[in-house]
Protein backbone atom coordinates (compact mmCIF):
# COMPACT_ATOMS: atom_id res chain seq x y z
CA UNK A 1 0.00 0.00 0.00
CA UNK A 2 1.31 3.47 -0.88
CA UNK A 3 1.42 5.93 1.96
CA UNK A 4 -1.15 8.70 2.45
CA UNK A 5 -2.14 11.36 4.93
CA UNK A 6 -4.59 10.02 7.47
CA UNK A 7 -7.29 12.24 9.00
CA UNK A 8 -9.87 11.54 11.66
CA UNK A 9 -12.19 14.57 11.68
CA UNK A 10 -14.69 15.11 14.49
CA UNK A 11 -17.32 17.01 12.48
CA UNK A 12 -18.91 16.89 9.04
CA UNK A 13 -17.65 20.34 8.10
CA UNK A 14 -14.11 19.43 9.12
CA UNK A 15 -14.31 16.30 6.94
CA UNK A 16 -15.57 18.32 3.97
CA UNK A 17 -12.83 20.92 4.42
CA UNK A 18 -10.10 18.28 4.48
CA UNK A 19 -11.58 16.71 1.34
CA UNK A 20 -11.62 19.98 -0.59
CA UNK A 21 -8.12 20.88 0.52
CA UNK A 22 -6.58 17.56 -0.49
CA UNK A 23 -5.22 16.59 -3.87
CA UNK A 24 -7.02 13.24 -4.15
CA UNK A 25 -8.89 12.34 -0.97
CA UNK A 26 -11.05 9.34 -0.19
CA UNK A 27 -13.49 8.81 2.67
CA UNK A 28 -12.91 5.72 4.83
CA UNK A 29 -16.07 4.19 6.30
CA UNK A 30 -15.67 0.57 7.44
CA UNK A 31 -12.82 -0.06 5.02
CA UNK A 32 -13.86 -3.59 4.08
CA UNK A 33 -13.63 -2.72 0.40
CA UNK A 34 -11.31 0.28 0.57
CA UNK A 35 -8.46 -1.28 2.58
CA UNK A 36 -8.11 -4.33 0.27
CA UNK A 37 -8.32 -1.91 -2.69
CA UNK A 38 -5.49 0.21 -1.27
CA UNK A 39 -3.43 -2.90 -0.52
CA UNK A 40 -3.71 -3.95 -4.14
CA UNK A 41 -2.77 -0.42 -5.19
CA UNK A 42 -5.92 -0.20 -7.26
CA UNK A 43 -6.34 3.19 -5.65
CA UNK A 44 -3.61 5.52 -4.44
CA UNK A 45 -5.24 8.47 -2.68
CA UNK A 46 -3.19 11.32 -1.26
CA UNK A 47 -5.44 11.53 1.81
CA UNK A 48 -7.67 9.07 3.67
CA UNK A 49 -10.44 10.64 5.78
CA UNK A 50 -11.73 8.29 8.47
CA UNK A 51 -15.41 9.03 9.17
CA UNK A 52 -15.63 6.91 12.33
CA UNK A 53 -15.70 9.86 14.75
CA UNK A 54 -18.60 11.73 13.14
CA UNK A 55 -21.51 11.45 15.57
CA UNK A 56 -23.96 12.66 12.87
CA UNK A 57 -23.34 9.46 10.90
CA UNK A 58 -24.19 7.04 13.69
CA UNK A 59 -27.31 5.48 15.14
CA UNK A 60 -30.63 3.92 14.19
CA UNK A 61 -33.80 5.95 14.77
CA UNK A 62 -37.46 5.17 14.22
CA UNK A 63 -39.30 8.10 12.71
CA UNK A 64 -42.85 8.31 11.43
CA UNK A 65 -43.25 5.41 8.97
CA UNK A 66 -39.50 5.07 8.46
CA UNK A 67 -36.35 3.59 9.94
CA UNK A 68 -33.45 6.03 9.63
CA UNK A 69 -29.99 4.51 9.77
CA UNK A 70 -26.76 6.49 10.09
CA UNK A 71 -24.26 5.91 7.30
CA UNK A 72 -21.53 4.62 9.65
CA UNK A 73 -23.81 1.97 11.20
CA UNK A 74 -22.10 -1.42 10.94
CA UNK A 75 -23.82 -4.33 9.20
CA UNK A 76 -23.76 -6.32 12.47
CA UNK A 77 -25.61 -3.51 14.26
CA UNK A 78 -28.30 -3.30 11.57
CA UNK A 79 -28.72 -7.10 11.70
CA UNK A 80 -29.04 -7.06 15.51
CA UNK A 81 -31.20 -3.93 15.84
CA UNK A 82 -34.52 -4.73 17.51
CA UNK A 83 -36.14 -1.78 15.69
CA UNK A 84 -34.96 -2.93 12.26
CA UNK A 85 -35.91 -6.54 13.01
CA UNK A 86 -39.37 -5.48 14.12
CA UNK A 87 -40.16 -2.95 11.39
CA UNK A 88 -38.16 -4.12 8.34
CA UNK A 89 -37.07 -7.71 9.04
CA UNK A 90 -35.95 -8.11 5.42
CA UNK A 91 -33.34 -5.37 5.96
CA UNK A 92 -32.03 -6.99 9.15
CA UNK A 93 -31.86 -10.32 7.33
CA UNK A 94 -29.98 -8.71 4.41
CA UNK A 95 -27.45 -7.08 6.75
CA UNK A 96 -26.83 -10.44 8.44
CA UNK A 97 -26.03 -12.02 5.08
CA UNK A 98 -23.34 -9.54 4.03
CA UNK A 99 -19.88 -11.10 3.86
CA UNK A 100 -18.90 -12.83 7.08
CA UNK A 101 -18.99 -11.87 10.79
CA UNK A 102 -15.66 -10.03 10.65
CA UNK A 103 -16.78 -7.97 7.64
CA UNK A 104 -20.09 -7.23 9.37
CA UNK A 105 -18.23 -5.93 12.46
CA UNK A 106 -16.63 -3.14 10.43
CA UNK A 107 -18.49 -2.72 7.14
CA UNK A 108 -21.08 0.06 7.05
CA UNK A 109 -24.38 0.84 5.35
CA UNK A 110 -23.13 4.13 3.94
CA UNK A 111 -19.89 2.66 2.68
CA UNK A 112 -21.67 -0.12 0.86
CA UNK A 113 -24.28 2.15 -0.74
CA UNK A 114 -21.77 4.87 -1.72
CA UNK A 115 -19.50 2.27 -3.32
CA UNK A 116 -22.30 0.88 -5.55
CA UNK A 117 -20.51 -2.42 -6.01
CA UNK A 118 -22.55 -4.32 -8.61
CA UNK A 119 -22.71 -7.35 -6.27
CA UNK A 120 -23.38 -5.56 -2.97
CA UNK A 121 -26.55 -6.45 -1.05
CA UNK A 122 -27.72 -3.13 0.38
CA UNK A 123 -28.46 -1.39 -2.96
CA UNK A 124 -31.27 -3.91 -3.61
CA UNK A 125 -33.02 -2.93 -0.36
CA UNK A 126 -32.38 0.79 -0.85
CA UNK A 127 -34.06 0.63 -4.26
CA UNK A 128 -36.88 -1.80 -3.45
CA UNK A 129 -37.88 0.02 -0.27
CA UNK A 130 -37.70 3.41 -2.03
CA UNK A 131 -35.23 4.76 0.53
CA UNK A 132 -34.06 8.36 0.70
CA UNK A 133 -30.31 9.00 0.81
CA UNK A 134 -29.45 12.04 2.93
CA UNK A 135 -26.24 14.00 2.34
CA UNK A 136 -25.30 17.29 4.01
CA UNK A 137 -26.57 19.15 0.93
CA UNK A 138 -29.67 17.28 -0.23
CA UNK A 139 -31.88 14.22 -0.19
CA UNK A 140 -31.46 11.83 -3.11
CA UNK A 141 -34.23 9.37 -4.02
CA UNK A 142 -33.09 5.78 -4.36
CA UNK A 143 -34.35 5.72 -7.96
CA UNK A 144 -31.87 8.47 -8.85
CA UNK A 145 -28.93 7.22 -6.82
CA UNK A 146 -27.29 4.23 -8.51
CA UNK A 147 -26.01 5.44 -11.88
CA UNK A 148 -23.47 2.84 -12.99
CA UNK A 149 -20.71 0.42 -12.12
CA UNK A 150 -19.28 1.82 -8.85
CA UNK A 151 -20.99 5.11 -9.77
CA UNK A 152 -23.63 7.04 -7.90
CA UNK A 153 -25.30 10.45 -7.92
CA UNK A 154 -22.90 11.63 -5.18
CA UNK A 155 -20.73 14.58 -6.18
CA UNK A 156 -17.00 14.49 -5.35
CA UNK A 157 -16.64 15.11 -1.60
CA UNK A 158 -20.34 14.59 -0.94
CA UNK A 159 -20.98 11.90 1.64
CA UNK A 160 -23.98 9.92 2.84
CA UNK A 161 -25.07 11.01 6.31
CA UNK A 162 -28.04 8.69 6.77
CA UNK A 163 -30.54 6.64 4.82
CA UNK A 164 -34.24 6.71 5.53
CA UNK A 165 -36.06 3.44 4.78
CA UNK A 166 -39.87 3.74 4.59
CA UNK A 167 -41.41 0.82 6.48
CA UNK A 168 -43.00 -1.50 3.88
CA UNK A 169 -46.14 -3.58 4.35
CA UNK A 170 -43.91 -6.55 3.66
CA UNK A 171 -40.55 -7.19 2.02
CA UNK A 172 -38.10 -10.02 1.41
CA UNK A 173 -34.55 -10.27 0.08
CA UNK A 174 -33.23 -13.45 -1.50
CA UNK A 175 -29.76 -13.87 -2.91
CA UNK A 176 -27.73 -16.52 -4.65
CA UNK A 177 -24.37 -16.13 -2.98
CA UNK A 178 -20.96 -16.63 -4.40
CA UNK A 179 -19.89 -19.44 -2.03
CA UNK A 180 -16.42 -17.96 -1.50
CA UNK A 181 -16.99 -14.20 -1.31
CA UNK A 182 -20.66 -14.23 -0.21
CA UNK A 183 -21.31 -11.43 -2.67
CA UNK A 184 -24.59 -11.72 -4.57
CA UNK A 185 -24.25 -13.51 -7.91
CA UNK A 186 -27.83 -12.32 -8.13
CA UNK A 187 -30.05 -10.89 -5.39
CA UNK A 188 -33.64 -9.71 -5.52
CA UNK A 189 -35.54 -7.60 -3.03
CA UNK A 190 -39.33 -7.58 -3.37
CA UNK A 191 -41.21 -4.95 -1.36
CA UNK A 192 -44.90 -4.21 -0.97
CA UNK A 193 -44.76 -0.50 -0.18
CA UNK A 194 -47.13 2.43 0.23
CA UNK A 195 -46.10 3.39 -3.32
CA UNK A 196 -46.85 -0.05 -4.74
CA UNK A 197 -44.87 -3.19 -5.42
CA UNK A 198 -41.17 -2.57 -6.02
CA UNK A 199 -38.67 -5.18 -7.20
CA UNK A 200 -34.94 -4.43 -7.17
CA UNK A 201 -32.10 -6.57 -8.48
CA UNK A 202 -28.45 -6.55 -7.44
CA UNK A 203 -25.49 -8.66 -8.53
CA UNK A 204 -26.79 -9.12 -12.05
CA UNK A 205 -26.14 -5.81 -13.81
CA UNK A 206 -23.57 -3.00 -13.64
CA UNK A 207 -25.50 -1.53 -10.69
CA UNK A 208 -28.70 -2.28 -8.79
CA UNK A 209 -31.82 -1.68 -10.85
CA UNK A 210 -35.59 -2.07 -10.69
CA UNK A 211 -37.28 -4.94 -12.56
CA UNK A 212 -40.41 -3.14 -13.73
CA UNK A 213 -41.98 -6.07 -15.62
CA UNK A 214 -42.04 -8.02 -12.36
CA UNK A 215 -43.47 -5.04 -10.51
CA UNK A 216 -46.34 -4.81 -13.02
CA UNK A 217 -47.02 -8.55 -12.84
CA UNK A 218 -46.96 -8.61 -9.03
CA UNK A 219 -49.19 -5.54 -8.82
CA UNK A 220 -51.88 -7.47 -10.68
CA UNK A 221 -51.41 -10.64 -8.64
CA UNK A 222 -48.92 -11.00 -5.78
CA UNK A 223 -48.19 -14.66 -6.46
CA UNK A 224 -45.22 -16.69 -7.67
CA UNK A 225 -47.34 -17.74 -10.65
CA UNK A 226 -47.63 -14.12 -11.75
CA UNK A 227 -43.85 -14.05 -12.19
CA UNK A 228 -43.89 -17.10 -14.46
CA UNK A 229 -45.02 -14.95 -17.40
CA UNK A 230 -42.14 -12.47 -17.01
CA UNK A 231 -39.17 -13.15 -19.25
CA UNK A 232 -36.01 -11.74 -17.65
CA UNK A 233 -33.79 -10.44 -20.41
CA UNK A 234 -30.09 -11.17 -20.12
CA UNK A 235 -29.27 -8.10 -22.19
CA UNK A 236 -27.05 -5.70 -20.18
CA UNK A 237 -26.49 -8.32 -17.45
CA UNK A 238 -22.96 -9.25 -16.34
CA UNK A 239 -20.92 -12.17 -17.55
CA UNK A 240 -17.85 -13.09 -15.51
CA UNK A 241 -16.05 -16.20 -14.31
CA UNK A 242 -18.82 -16.87 -11.78
CA UNK A 243 -21.86 -16.77 -14.08
CA UNK A 244 -22.98 -15.91 -17.60
CA UNK A 245 -25.56 -13.21 -18.26
CA UNK A 246 -28.08 -15.90 -19.22
CA UNK A 247 -27.53 -17.74 -15.94
CA UNK A 248 -27.87 -14.49 -13.99
CA UNK A 249 -31.18 -13.79 -15.77
CA UNK A 250 -32.34 -17.23 -14.68
CA UNK A 251 -31.21 -16.59 -11.09
CA UNK A 252 -33.07 -13.26 -10.99
CA UNK A 253 -36.30 -15.10 -11.82
CA UNK A 254 -35.62 -17.78 -9.19
CA UNK A 255 -34.68 -15.31 -6.44
CA UNK A 256 -37.73 -13.14 -7.19
CA UNK A 257 -39.99 -16.18 -6.96
CA UNK A 258 -38.42 -17.21 -3.65
CA UNK A 259 -38.89 -13.71 -2.25
CA UNK A 260 -42.57 -13.69 -3.20
CA UNK A 261 -43.02 -17.20 -1.80
CA UNK A 262 -41.54 -16.02 1.49
CA UNK A 263 -44.13 -13.24 1.70
CA UNK A 264 -47.37 -15.14 1.12
Amino acid sequence: MHNFNYHRPKTLSEARAIFSGAEDAVYLAGGQTLIPTLKQRLRQPSDVIDLSQLAELRGIAVEKDAVVIGAMTRHADVAASTDVRRLIPALAHLAGEVGDPQVRSLGTLGGSVANSDPAADYPAAVLALGAAIHTPERIIAADDFFTGLFETALEPGEMIVKISFPVPKRAAYMKFRNPASRYAVAGVCVADTAKGIRVAVTGAGPNAFRQTEMETALSKSFTPEALAGVIVSSEDLNTDLHATAAYRAHLVAVMARRAVEALI
Binding site: Y6, G31, S52, A76, Q102, V103, S105, L106
Partner: peptide, 21 residues
Amino acid sequence: GTCTVHIAGKPVKACAMLAAQ
Protein backbone atom coordinates in the same frame (compact mmCIF):
# COMPACT_ATOMS: atom_id res chain seq x y z
CA GLY B 1 -9.73 -14.93 8.80
CA THR B 2 -6.55 -16.23 10.40
CA CYS B 3 -5.71 -12.62 11.41
CA THR B 4 -8.97 -12.32 13.42
CA VAL B 5 -8.66 -10.28 16.63
CA HIS B 6 -11.25 -8.54 18.77
CA ILE B 7 -11.73 -4.79 18.84
CA ALA B 8 -13.98 -3.88 21.76
CA GLY B 9 -15.10 -7.52 21.80
CA LYS B 10 -16.08 -7.66 18.09
CA PRO B 11 -14.23 -9.94 15.66
CA VAL B 12 -12.34 -8.10 12.91
CA LYS B 13 -9.74 -9.05 10.33
CA ALA B 14 -6.59 -7.25 11.42
CA CYS B 15 -5.28 -7.31 7.83
CA ALA B 16 -8.32 -5.34 6.65
CA MET B 17 -7.98 -2.52 9.14
CA LEU B 18 -5.50 0.31 9.47
CA ALA B 19 -3.79 0.47 12.85
CA ALA B 20 -4.86 4.13 12.88
CA GLN B 21 -8.51 3.05 12.80
